[in-house]
């Protein structure tokens, strides 16, 4: 059946089977390819998006189960109006290959939303599910701290 989903503020009608994961709705039906496929089993975090503001692995949420508005990396911020985390990622030159970074940033955005000034240990705990084969972890940690400071200082 045709279902409606709201992604980055826009309503879309999706004609795909109910069990198609949100990840593949975004990537193949809507062409929002900033959200990445890495594992399909919630083991890498590359597909992380927000539903109702909460970070989820979009490879594990069936189309029929999408319970609220979806935000992807494309909706988090755009050139000229970047999210504090995206700016911090640029300032700290975090990305190498860049493939996992959409998921990293979306996961970090969820962390800062619930914990505006996280400690190193809290960053580690929140980000442990997001794999990066390039090894950008130290810069990710520094960028999360920097974004937290930027938001606090307004």
């Amino acid at each position: 059946m045709v279902r409606q989903v709201t992604v980055n503020g826009s309503r879309h009608e999706i004609d795909l089977p109910d069990d198609v994961p949100l990840l593949w709705v975004l990537r193949d039906a809507l062409g929002l390819t900033g959200t990445k496929y890495g594992c399909g089993v919630a083991a890498c975090g590359a597909c992380t998006v927000h539903i109702d503001g909460q970070a989820v692995r979009s490879c594990q949420v069936a189309l029929a189960d999408v319970w609220g508005p979806v935000t992807t990396i494309e909706g988090l911020g755009q050139p000229g109006a970047l999210h504090a985390l995206q700016q911090a990622w640029i300032d700290h030159q975090v990305a190498q290959c860049g493939y996992c970074q959409s998921g990293q940033i979306m996961q970090a955005a969820d962390l800062l939303a619930v914990n505006p000034v996280p400690s190193d240990a809290e960053i580690d705990a929140a980000m442990a599910g997001n794999l990066c084969r390039c090894g950008t972890y130290p810069r990710i940690r520094a960028a999360v701290h920097a974004a937290a400071r930027a938001v606090q200082e307004g």
């Binding site: 900033g34 496929y37 640029i90 975090v94 860049g98 493939y99 959409s102």
Partner: peptide, 21 residues
């Protein structure tokens, strides 16, 4: 130097082989 690929990679705009539509 500021990396020229960084903005694309933090906004989801960077196109990988898997992203070609």
């Amino acid at each position: 130097m500021p990396r020229l690929d960084m903005l694309d990679k933090v906004t989801g705009a960077a196109q990988f082989g898997i992203d070609v539509r």
